[in-house]
Structure formats: C-alpha cells, structure tokens
C-alpha cells in the first residue's frame, strides 16, 4: 500500500511521512498528478493558511484531481477545512466538497486563540476513536451534515468529518501520540 502526501506548500510534511513510516506504511510526498494517481490513498495536509493552501493547489493543478478522486483521502487541519465551501481566513473560497463554512475562534467566548494543545474528541460512529488529540488552530467548522466527531472549545465544533471517500480531522493525528496512531490506523483500514 502506498499513500501520497499531497505537497500543497506549508511546512511539516515530514511529520506525516514519519507517522506512516512508524506504522509500517509507505508514503511519498509529491505534487505530481502522475505520481499521485499511482497511489492507493491520499493525505491532504495543510499548515499555513487556507488562502495559501488553495492558491498552491490551484497553481499545481491539483484542485480537480482532489475533487474527482474516488480513493480515500484524509484532510488534516487546514487540509480538512478546505473541503468546505468557504473559510473566513482571508475570505477564501474552498473546494466545496462539504457544505459549510470555516469561522474563527473568538476570545470573547473565554478561550485563548489559537487553540493549542490536547482536546477531547467524541466520535458518534466509532467510540474507539474517542480520546485526546493535539490541536493547533484558530479556525474551525461549527457543525456539518458529515461531522462524526465533536470537540469543545468555547463552543462545540467539528473535529472529525466523513463523507464517502473523504475523511477529515481538525487535530493533528501525526502529533497525537497513541490516539493519533489509532486514528491513522482507522484511515488505513478504509483503503
């Protein structure tokens, strides 16, 4: 099995690569559509901001590829956020695969922004995924038709989404110790 980590700019692609390697799964980091089409599944990372990630995908001709693939694809953090229609972060139009918007945490809700640290996730469909995961984000989706995991930070928000071949997590499984490994294994099992 080979996983293609989609290089959409931003730093820290290596952490995702290493987390699969620790699980004994082969992964490559690439932005070539040709190389990606030979893979069994994809990870869409995304560190940075929604507009930068979208612009990079556009420049590298990856938008249609992501929207049309039927293979399992995991979006992590901003990688999950751009599955939605729109992000408040620099007013960015996103992929529109999942109905809904991305908004910003508000210090008036009594929380520090960004959210940085370990938060509890409760999954409606699979309670073996419940646990603490590592988050580092200022933006979030409140709720969607495809949300299967929730966390709370000032308000309740979507921490896991699932629709057909699409899986998304607001946290960083590659940095979430044993819980993160379990989540990545859940993704790998869907391949």
């Amino acid at each position: 099995m080979n996983i293609g980590i989609i290089d959409c700019g931003g730093a820290n692609l290596n952490s995702i690569y290493y987390s699969f390697k620790r699980l004994g799964i082969n992964a490559i980091i690439t932005n070539s559509v040709k190389e990606l089409s030979e893979m069994n599944a994809y990870v869409l990372p995304g560190v940075g901001s929604a507009d930068v990630v979208m612009n990079t995908l556009r420049k590298r001709d990856l938008i249609n590829f992501i929207k049309s693939t039927k293979k399992p694809i995991l979006g992590i953090c901003i990688g999950m956020q751009i599955f939605f229609d729109y992000s408040e972060e620099n007013q960015t139009g996103c992929l529109g695969i999942i109905d809904g918007n991305i908004e910003k945490f508000n210090v008036n809700d009594g929380v520090n922004v960004p959210q940085m640290g370990w938060n509890k996730v409760e999954c409606d469909t699979d309670n073996s995924l419940n646990g603490h995961y590592y988050f580092a984000n200022s933006y979030f989706n409140k709720d969607s038709k495809f949300t299967i995991g929730y966390s709370s930070y000032g308000n309740k928000f979507s921490s896991i989404i699932k629709k057909d071949n699409i899986l998304g997590c607001q946290f960083h499984p590659e940095k979430s110790s044993k819980a993160g490994e379990k989540f990545l294994t859940y993704f790998i099992k869907s391949i």
């Binding site: 987390s19 390697k21 590592y134 960083h172």
Partner: peptide, 11 residues
C-alpha cells in the same frame, strides 16, 4: 530536529 521528528509522536 529531523531525528527527533522521526522518533517522537507529540508536538
């Protein structure tokens, strides 16, 4: 830094 990233799974 690279070696640390390879062996640990926390931030």
């Amino acid at each position: 830094v690279k070696i640390i990233a390879e062996i640990i799974n926390i931030p």
